[in-house]
Simulated assay, not measured.
Amino acid sequence: MSLRKAKSRQPETIRTVQKDLTYTNELTEDLSDILRMSGPRNWIKYNNVCKLIAEIVYHGFATCNNLQTLGEEYTGILQIDCNYINAPSKILRLSAIILEFGGETLYTKVLNNLERNIDSNEDILPEAKEKLKILIHYMRNSVSYVKALHKTLFYLNSNKYQISKRITGINYVLIRHWMQPDHSLYGYRILGWITLLQLVITFVVGSFEAWKESQRKSTGRNSSSQKLERLLGTQKSRDAPQCILCLEPRINTSLTPCGHIFCWHCILEWLDERDECPLCRENINKSNVIQLRNFV
């Protein structure tokens, strides 16, 4: 008989995880009490590590000695490889333990170090830095979506409650599968579809909020740029020399043969009335006026 038909279902897997969690919580409390004896300073500093140590010691001891965990023994299930043929190797089981209880922390630290290196690297352009930091931000926020998607797949049709089991391909099979209670799993599937719907709604709302935030920042940057340009333009206008005809800052500065400077349109309008320089009264024609480029 193929062991695929004996794979555990959601109820057995959940009871296994809950039973193991009970023992690891007790072990965590014992380690915390021992640490408290070393003084309040050490307890405050290292108490958060007790949970990680308890999880690794509990599951690592069972793995190194080729034993079931107490939760697996309680529900009567065994770990097996992705092909449902042999028990998973110790290295594979230890890798699953490390991924399960330290993978997310390691992932976050890698992203944080990468972000710091990007900030301190002067060879990266500011525009590229901003895009890379946005990518890291999305990668950091994607953890919750990955967890929700994994939970959805578990409720729909899977016996992999932990993400580490899905990554390493480790499955659970029932030892006495013929004694498996004939419970309906429709409730789990309904829960899976509800979880999927919640994930989709959360993703859509989050994406819309991120789009609004990017639009707001873009509008703010454009508004700031326009204000700066207007301020600089006003300052330049104030500092620019005035045209003797319109008494305003010169626009399209133009030069007459006699050496006097006016606005282009001002001097042309003047010459429409009389063919002489407004200042020295020297005779000039429109064709003799030269528009100066890059001249204030």
Results as ranks from 00 to 15, higher is better:
A128F: 10
L70T: 10
S142H: 08
I136F: 07
I201R: 01
T24V: 12
V289G: 07
L185G: 03
N83W: 09
I167E: 00
Y161S: 08
C64K: 01
E229A: 13
A210I: 00
G169S: 08
R9G: 14
S207T: 15
I136L: 09
G220F: 11
L111A: 07
L149M: 14
V205F: 00
Q162C: 08
T22D: 14
T152W: 08
D20T: 04
W43S: 15
L268F: 12
K286V: 05
T108R: 11
L92F: 05
P88E: 01
I85C: 08
T168E: 01
Q215W: 02
E213Q: 05
R140V: 10
N288R: 13
T13P: 06
G259I: 08
N294S: 10
E29A: 15
N171D: 00
T24W: 00
L35W: 00
R281N: 05
P278T: 04
N141A: 12
I167K: 06
N294V: 07
C266M: 03
E269R: 12
E55Y: 13
F295H: 14
L125V: 09
G39D: 09
K51E: 12
N141Q: 10
L231W: 11
L153Y: 15
L132F: 14
V296H: 15
R281D: 10
L268S: 09
V110L: 02
H137N: 13
E104I: 14
R166V: 04
I290R: 11
T108F: 15
T168Q: 03
N171Y: 01
C280A: 01
I85K: 05
R189N: 06
R176M: 05
E72Y: 04
L228D: 11
R293S: 02
P88N: 03
L196F: 13
Y161D: 03
V110Y: 05
P40E: 15
N222P: 02
C263K: 07
C280D: 06
N83G: 02
E122N: 08
A96I: 02
G102S: 03
S144A: 15
R216F: 13
E229W: 14
T28R: 15
V143T: 11
S120G: 08
L245K: 10
K109F: 14
K151S: 07
T13A: 13
I201G: 01
G71M: 00
L106V: 12
K236R: 12
F101N: 00
S184M: 04
L35F: 00
L247F: 04
Q235H: 05
H150I: 09
Q235A: 10
N117F: 13
E282S: 14
K160A: 05
N141R: 05
I118L: 10
Q242S: 07
H59A: 10
I244F: 12
Y74C: 12
L245M: 02
L70Y: 01
I85S: 04
N121E: 06
E29H: 11
A54M: 06
G220C: 08
T22K: 12
R274G: 04
